[in-house]
């Protein structure tokens, strides 16, 4: 047993402090220690993206990061993106355009898409497909995921224009 480390994270706006073994993977910290079960485990070798969260502004596969590495980081999971009273346009769009089926990839997919739309606010279809290629889906064939992201992008752009 190795020496436990003190870890402080800010997850979805809340500060979390705990002692963890260095080998504790961030995905287990979130899921088992903090009961944030939106991010899922699909492949464990950084291919599927079901565990995607945003860490200090980057899309990260949390199964391939130790919690100790994230010391001091700000982390956003699907739970921090929008809830029953304030759904994110991407959450709305995935519902509206049948962008999910079993729902297992969905939290990672939407979390990654929030970042993609920051990187490219009005992406082309090719940019969406390329920018979402770190997230695997076994159910949808991606077509409606692409459609959902396009719809959310249009909605967000329109909202931004209206605000300006």
């Amino acid at each position: 047993m190795s020496k436990k480390k003190h870890v402080t994270l800010n997850v979805n706006g809340k500060t979390e402090e705990f002692l963890a073994e260095p080998r504790e993977l961030l995905i287990y910290t979130l899921r088992e220690r903090l009961n944030i079960t939106g991010p899922h485990i699909g492949c464990e070798t950084s291919h599927c993206g079901a565990c995607t969260v945003t860490i200090d502004g980057k899309s990260v596969k949390s199964c391939t990061m130790f919690a100790v590495q994230a010391e001091g980081a700000e982390i956003t999971t699907i739970e921090g993106i929008g809830g029953p009273d304030n759904l994110h346009p991407l959450q709305e769009a995935f519902k509206e355009h049948h962008g999910l089926q079993c729902g297992y990839c969905t939290p990672g997919m939407i979390t990654r898409a929030t970042k993609l739309l920051e990187e490219i606010p009005n992406p082309t279809e090719a940019e969406i497909r390329f920018g979402m290629a770190g997230n695997l889906c076994r159910c949808t064939g991606y077509q409606n995921i692409v459609k959902s992201i396009q719809a959310a992008a249009a909605q967000m752009s329109a909202a931004k224009e209206a605000a300006e």
Binding site: S46, G49, T52, K58, S59, V60, K61, T64, M65, R112, L116, G131, M132, A133, G134
Partner: peptide
């Protein structure tokens, strides 16, 4: 190289 998430790290 790899995919967007991996390129971030």
């Amino acid at each position: 190289i790899a995919d967007p998430q991996v390129r971030y790290m």
